[in-house]
C-alpha cells in the first residue's frame, strides 16, 4: 500500500510561561517527534488521553497548523509548500468535536454548503448548485427542509452532519475527524458513524479518526496509533492491538476502558491504571510512561525507547519488547 500522507519526525512545541527576556522560556511538547504513514483508503485511529497531542497532530495533518520541526509529505511533496495550490487545498478536510464552534451561526444550511461547493466549483450555476446541495443533504440523511435553517435550529446530531457535509462538499481525499461523535448522544452516534463509513466507501476517503473511545476504534478503524505525551507508543492493525497489545500503556488503556472490555479486548489486572500523565513541559528523561509503568526498570528512566518495528505491520516504543 502507498502512503498518502507521510509524517517524518514531526514536532510542535507551544510556549508555556514567558521566562525572562526570552531566556529560560519553557515549551510544552505537544507533538514530539512523530513519524507515521497514512495509507490510501484506510481508517487510521489516533488514540490518546487529553494532553497526548492527538488533536495537535490532527491539525498538522489537516494543514491547519505548521509543525516546528520535521516534515509532512502529501504524495511525496511537502504539504506546507503546496498547500496554496488550488488542486491541493481541498484534498484534506477536517471535522471537529463541537459543530457549534465550527459552523457560522448566521449562515443557513444552504449558505454554508453553497460556500463550500463554490470554493471547489466557482463557475457552478445556481440551479446546479441547488441540485448539488440537495444531493449532499440526501446523502447525509437530511431533507430539503433543512436548507433554510440556521445552526441554532438544528439538533446536535444534525449540526454535526452539516459540518461533515461541508467538509465533503469540496470532495476531499483525506478527512481528519477529531472526536466528531463525542458530544453526540449514544443513540444518535451510531447513525453518524454509519453515515461516515458509507461516505468513506462512496468517496474513497482516507480517514484519520481521532478519539479517546476504544469502542469506536473497534467499530470503525483499520489501524490504530496510540499517543502518549506527544509520542506514538504503539501502532498496528486494530484486531491485533486489541487482542495482543505490546506497549504497557496500551495495556493500561485497554484494561481501563469499559467500552474496550465490552468488545472483548485484552484485560490484565497487572496493568490496572495508576498515576497521572507527566507534564508535557517537564516530562521524564527516558520513557515518558516510566512514572506509571508497572514493568519499568532502571534503564527506562534514562533511555528513551524509539518506535521500532516488532513485526511486519506493528511497531512499539518500549525497551521491554
Amino acid at each position: 500500500m502507498e502512503a498518502v500522507v507521510r509524517l517524518i519526525d514531526v514536532r510542535k512545541y507551544f510556549p508555556a510561561g514567558a521566562g525572562i527576556l526570552g531566556f529560560g522560556r519553557k515549551y510544552a511538547r505537544a507533538v514530539d517527534g512523530v513519524s507515521l504513514d497514512v495509507y490510501g483508503g484506510e481508517v487510521l485511529a489516533l488514540v490518546g488521553e487529553s494532553g497526548s497531542g492527538k488533536s495537535t497532530l490532527g491539525k498538522i495533518v489537516a494543514g491547519l497548523l505548521e509543525p516546528d520541526g520535521g516534515k509532512v509529505l502529501y504524495r511525496g511533496e511537502d504539504l506546507f509548500r503546496i498547500l496554496g495550490r488550488r488542486d491541493v487545498r481541498h484534498k484534506i478536510q477536517a471535522v471537529f468535536q463541537n459543530p457549534d464552534s465550527s459552523l457560522n451561526p448566521r449562515l443557513t444550511v444552504f449558505d454554508t454548503l453553497s460556500e463550500a461547493i463554490k470554493a471547489r466549483n466557482p463557475k457552478l450555476g445556481n440551479s446546479h448548485l441547488l441540485e448539488e446541495i440537495v444531493k449532499l443533504l440526501k446523502v447525509m440523511g437530511l431533507s430539503e427542509d433543512h436548507l433554510v435553517k440556521y445552526p441554532g435550529e438544528l439538533s446536535g446530531g444534525e449540526k454535526q452532519r452539516i459540518a461533515i457535509a461541508r467538509a465533503l462538499a469540496v470532495e476531499p481525499e483525506i478527512l481528519v475527524a477529531d472526536e466528531i461523535v463525542s458530544s453526540v448522544d449514544v443513540s444518535v452516534r451510531a447513525h453518524i458513524l454509519n453515515l461516515l463509513m458509507d461516505l468513506k466507501e462512496m468517496y474513497k476517503l482516507t480517514m484519520i479518526f481521532i478519539t479517546h473511545d476504544m469502542g469506536l476504534v473497534w467499530a470503525v478503524a483499520d489501524r490504530i496509533a496510540i499517543m502518549y505525551t506527544g509520542k506514538i507508543v504503539e501502532e498496528g492493525p486494530v484486531e491485533e492491538v486489541f487482542k495482543d497489545p505490546l506497549h504497557p500503556y496500551t495495556k493500561m488503556l485497554l484494561t481501563s476502558s469499559p467500552s474496550a472490555k465490552l468488545v472483548g479486548a485484552y484485560v490484565d489486572e497487572k496493568f490496572k491504571a495508576r498515576g497521572e500523565p507527566p507534564s508535557p513541559i517537564d516530562p521524564p528523561k527516558g520513557c515518558k510512561f516510566v512514572t506509571r509503568c508497572p514493568i519499568a526498570t532502571k534503564e527506562c528512566w534514562t533511555q528513551e525507547p524509539p518506535l521500532k518495528p516488532v513485526s511486519a505491520n506493528r511497531k512499539a516504543a518500549c525497551l521491554k519488547i
Binding site: 452516534r189 458513524l193 469502542g215
Partner: peptide
C-alpha cells in the same frame, strides 16, 4: 451501539 461488531454497520436507533 456499545458492543459493535468489527467493521459492520452499527445498529442505530433512528430519530432523536
Amino acid at each position: 451501539v456499545l458492543k459493535p461488531e468489527r467493521k459492520q454497520k452499527l445498529a442505530s436507533i433512528p430519530g432523536s
